[in-house]
């Protein structure tokens, strides 16, 4: 399957102040994917993203509800939760999820999937790098942790079948359990109702630069696009802010899941682990996390 990206970065200036933004599309498809309409969409999106930053404020610091918008925010699921469910970290006892198979890790309306079979998405594979057929693996089913992501070594350790997650960057590396396309199944709420339920918090449209500590589950993400939520309405755009949290706690704190699952069409799409980069995809419906730390300035 061919793989490609189209990325653009824009710097804008207004009244002597500069801002920049970037956006990209990528996937496993040929160049016919990049129609003039899609290229226009990309240009419009990146310009809108930079222009909005001139009106953006830095939100107050502290704990507050966070609404994760649909699509690319699925990277939070990938980083903050998915890595901890890769079986090598659990086999080595260094993941916070090491003793949690079969236990309740989220509300019953939360189901998380890792799926290598979605056509055109960056994490799509026919077989993994150990020859195991690609598959759709349910990590969390109705709030219960049901499976880790296995390569052949971890599968043998746990006396299970491999899940088709043994992936490597190239012939110079050895396979490790790696995610493919990781997403949460949609819930029943309307996205508007999720936003309406928040008196004061932030809405996260896009995040980047995520990092997680596997053993503790602690993570931090930079909010590259977002808005304040005040009295149930989206208000000022926000900038230069991080959201901090703990993967297991965040999962427990997801109190609403909307019906608008979207798989990310942008995002750099590479995941790094053990010095190896492999392409991955992710997605999320609109979700409410009832409390996270927002790293603002006051």
């Amino acid at each position: 399957m061919p793989r490609n990206y189209l990325a653009t970065s824009v710097v804008a200036e207004k009244d002597g102040r500069k801002e920049n933004a970037w956006y990209n599309y990528g996937g496993r498809q040929d160049f016919s994917y990049y129609t003039p309409e899609l290229v226009n969409k990309l240009a419009n999106e990146v310009v809108n993203r930079v222009v909005v930053l001139f009106d953006a404020i830095k939100p107050p610091a502290g704990e507050m509800p966070v609404v994760l918008g649909p699509g690319v925010t699925g990277i939070l699921l990938h980083e903050a939760i998915g890595h901890g469910m890769e079986a090598d970290f659990n086999r080595k006892k260094i993941s916070t999820y090491a003793n949690m198979i079969g236990k309740k890790v989220a509300e019953p309306f939360v189901t998380i999937i890792d799926d290598g079979t979605i056509h055109n998405k960056l994490g799509a594979i026919n077989i993994d790098d150990e020859g195991t057929e690609s598959q759709k693996t349910t990590l969390v089913e109705n709030g219960i942790l049901t499976s880790y992501l296995h390569d052949k070594i971890s599968a043998k350790h746990y006396n299970l079948k491999p899940t088709g997650n043994g992936r490597r960057e190239s012939y110079q590396h050895f396979p490790l359990p790696r995610m493919r396309n990781t997403y949460m199944l949609p819930g029943e709420a309307n996205p508007e109702d999720v936003i309406k339920s928040v008196e004061k918090g932030i809405y996260v449209k896009d995040v980047s630069n995520g990092q997680v500590k596997i053993g503790e589950g602690d993570f931090a993400f930079y909010v590259s696009q977002g808005q304040m939520i005040e009295n149930g309405k989206l208000t000022s755009p926000i900038k230069d802010v991080n959201i901090m949290g703990n993967g297991p706690k965040m999962l427990q704190n997801i109190t609403m899941v909307a019906n608008d699952l979207k798989l990310a069409e942008s995002g750099a799409g590479f995941c790094g682990k053990g010095g190896q980069r492999v392409p991955v995809g992710f997605g999320l419906p609109t979700c409410l996390v009832k409390s996270m730390t927002v790293g603002g300035t006051s």
Binding site: V11, R17, K18, E19, N20, S208, N209, G210, Q211, V212, K213, D218, F219, A220, F221, Y222, S224, K239, D240, N242, M244, G295
Partner: peptide, 11 residues
């Protein structure tokens, strides 16, 4: 952990 530094604005 994580985070961002914007070379354009210094934020």
């Amino acid at each position: 952990l994580g985070g961002n530094s914007n070379s354009t604005t210094g934020d």
